[in-house]
Every structure is written in structure tokens, then in C-alpha cells.
């Protein structure tokens, strides 16, 4: 078992390394020149060349990448003599925003985490609730309702749901104020209010596939022999469902949800745009508009880290639950 975990972690580490290298190379190979962005409209080529040296963009890509990795571990000073020092883990320095990228990310991450966490709880409740209901009342109206919801939800683009929510709850009925993010530490009530709409928007869209997964999962398990055996032996249907069926059916769903959640942590790009939340997604969009390369490299990396870690975690979890996996 330990060997399996070690191997899995090693693989995750290798994957992370590959992802970081790839990200760096992809962005470095782009036609936009980060040095050219450091000075204004009448910039002379000499100034750009000077800045390129100053920022280390003149060195071969491998060296640049090495410096980048070293920065993550040890911190790094950007610019030459009068440079700015960003302590470890340094993910770069934005010459557009004049700030260490790590600082920008630590500010945005809690916002995205707030969005992702609330939405996750909601969509699991909705998805599993409706899915279970559908499975137990299979073929009857609750099933149709749940399946209908899932089909509609899966067909709606996130931004459309978000805009509809704003239209209905903010503009037409005025039930909620216009979402405006507030940190949880500064004002928990406002934090909660500001996130209701984003949570529901994401939850409705994501829950749809979980309704399906749950419903099919439960139905599949209920067809298995142990359930039939249990029923035949006179176990109460309710006990059986809660104790055995749900447990067996939900495990794969929870793991998939873990992966989805991790992916969301990298930035709920569309939701954050619709509701104007200053999270990772919004940070990336702003960086795209400013051609702010260091930020883009960093947000991509951070998002990838979440995905890789979640994958490794899920694999290891499966290894515990199902020994057959370990041989893989």
C-alpha cells in the first residue's frame, strides 16, 4: 500500500513538473514580449532591450525556467540593483501591477474558495437529493421532475443562468442586492449575501450531472446481488438503502465531485465574471486583457496544482477502498 501511495505521489510530482515546464514554455513561446510592456508609448528599442536584460528575459528559456523554479523555492529579487524582492514561494512579479504575483494570488484565492465551497455544498445537496429521490421513485413524477431538471440544467450555459438570476432576483424583484464581494473575516453576513447568487448559479449548472450520476449509481447498486439478498432476508428497505445502497453508490460520486471542486478552485472564470467577484478567474481575465504574462503563468500553475493534487488524492483513496486498483 505504501509503495502504491509513494508511486502515486511521485507520479503527481512528475506531472506537476511537466505541467509547470509546459506552461512556462507555452507562454514564453508567445509572440508578445513581456519586456515591451514595461515602458510606454514612445518607447525606444534600447529601453526595451535594457529592460529585457534587467528582467532576465534575455536568457535562454531553460535558464529562465530554472530561475522561476528557484524563485518558488527560495524567493527571488526582480529587476537588477533597485529590484523588488518577493519572498518564497515566489510565482513571479507583475510589472504591470507592480506587485508580487504570490500576493495577488493569496488575495484572490479566498474569494474563489468561498465561491467553490458554497457551490460545492449546494450542488452536492441538490444533486444527491434529487438523484436519490429520482431513483427511489423511479418512473413516477419525482423521477421525471429530477430528470427534467437535470436535462434543462445541463443544457444551460453558466453565464446565462447567472444573468437570469441577476435579472430576476436583483433587477425585477429586488430581493437581493447587487452582488458585491466582501471578505468573510470583515463581514460574514455580507459575505454570505454576496455569494448566494453565485453559489446557486454554479450549483444549478453542476448539480444536473450529479442528479444523473446519483440516480444511475443507486439504481445500479440496487440491482446488485447483495441488495436483493438483503431484501430477501427481510432487512428493512429504508435501512438497506441508507446503510448499504447509498454508501456504495455515493463513493464514486464523491470522488468525481472532489475533482470538480479542485478544478473550480483554479478559478470559476465565468461565474466570477458574471458576478464581478475578484477571484482567480477574474484575476486571469484581467491579466489576459493586460497581457500580464507572469500572472497568467502563475494562475495556470496554481489551477493545475489543484487538479493534480485532487487526482492523486482520489486515486489513493480508491486504492484504499478497492485493492484491485493498486496493481495499476
Amino acid at each position: 500500500m505504501l509503495i502504491f501511495i509513494a508511486r502515486r505521489l511521485l507520479f503527481a510530482l512528475a506531472l506537476l513538473f511537466a505541467v509547470s515546464a509546459f506552461t512556462y514554455v507555452i507562454f514564453a513561446a508567445l509572440p508578445s514580449d513581456p519586456a515591451a510592456l514595461t515602458c510606454g508609448k514612445n518607447c525606444r528599442p534600447e529601453v526595451i532591450a535594457m529592460n529585457r536584460v534587467r528582467l532576465g528575459y534575455d536568457k535562454p528559456i531553460v535558464v529562465q525556467y530554472g530561475q522561476y523554479l528557484k524563485g518558488i523555492v527560495k524567493g527571488r529579487t526582480y529587476g537588477a540593483s533597485e529590484g523588488v524582492h518577493c519572498p518564497a514561494p515566489s510565482l513571479g512579479y507583475s510589472f504591470r501591477k507592480h506587485q508580487c504575483v504570490t500576493d495577488l494570488i493569496t488575495r484572490s484565492l479566498p474569494v474563489t474558495a468561498s465561491v467553490a465551497l458554497g457551490a460545492f455544498v449546494l450542488w452536492m445537496l441538490i444533486g444527491i437529493g434529487l438523484g436519490t429521490m429520482a431513483a427511489l421513485k423511479r418512473g413516477r413524477w419525482p423521477d421525471r421532475l429530477a430528470t427534467g431538471f437535470s436535462v434543462v440544467g445541463i443544457s444551460l450555459p453558466t453565464f446565462f443562468v447567472g444573468l437570469l438570476a441577476i435579472m430576476v432576483f436583483v433587477i425585477w424583484t429586488g430581493l437581493l442586492p447587487f452582488p458585491r464581494y466582501e471578505g468573510i473575516t470583515s463581514n460574514p453576513a455580507k459575505w454570505f449575501m454576496s455569494l448566494i447568487l453565485p453559489w446557486f448559479t454554479l450549483a444549478i449548472v453542476s448539480a444536473s450531472s450529479y442528479v444523473r450520476l446519483t440516480r444511475n449509481g443507486i439504481l445500479e447498486v440496487m440491482n446488485e446481488e447483495f441488495v436483493r439478498l438483503g431484501l430477501a432476508k427481510g432487512l428493512r428497505r429504508r435501512t438497506l438503502i441508507v446503510k448499504y445502497v447509498m454508501r456504495a453508490a455515493l463513493l464514486p460520486i464523491v470522488t468525481i465531485a472532489g475533482l470538480d471542486f479542485a478544478a473550480l478552485l483554479g478559478g470559476a472564470v465565468i461565474t466570477e465574471s458574471v458576478f464581478n467577484l475578484p477571484g482567480m478567474g477574474k484575476l486571469s481575465i484581467m491579466a489576459v486583457n493586460d497581457s500580464d504574462l507572469p500572472i497568467l503563468v502563475a494562475t495556470t500553475l496554481v489551477a493545475a496544482v489543484f487538479i493534480v493534487i485532487a487526482n492523486a488524492f482520489v486515486d489513493i483513496l480508491y486504492g484504499f477502498l478497492d485493492p484491485r486498483v493498486r496493481s495499476y
Binding site: 506531472l15 506537476l16 511537466a18 505541467v19 509546459f22 506552461t23 507555452i26 507562454f27 508567445l30 509572440p31 508578445s32 478544478a263 483554479g266 478559478g267 472564470v269 465565468i270 478567474g281 486571469s284 481575465i285 491579466a287 489576459v288 497581457s291 497568467l296 494562475t299 495556470t300 489551477a303 493545475a304 487538479i307 493534480v308 487526482n311
Partner: peptide, 18 residues
């Protein structure tokens, strides 16, 4: 595996213009 490790939407947006 590598492809799945990338945040696809983010990259699609970032790489669009260049």
C-alpha cells in the same frame, strides 16, 4: 494525463489572442 491537468478554459482564454 498532462492535458487533463491543465485548466482548459483558462488556457483557452489566455492563448486566444497570441
Amino acid at each position: 494525463d498532462l492535458t487533463l491537468a491543465f485548466p482548459s478554459l483558462l488556457l483557452i482564454i489566455a492563448l486566444n489572442r497570441p
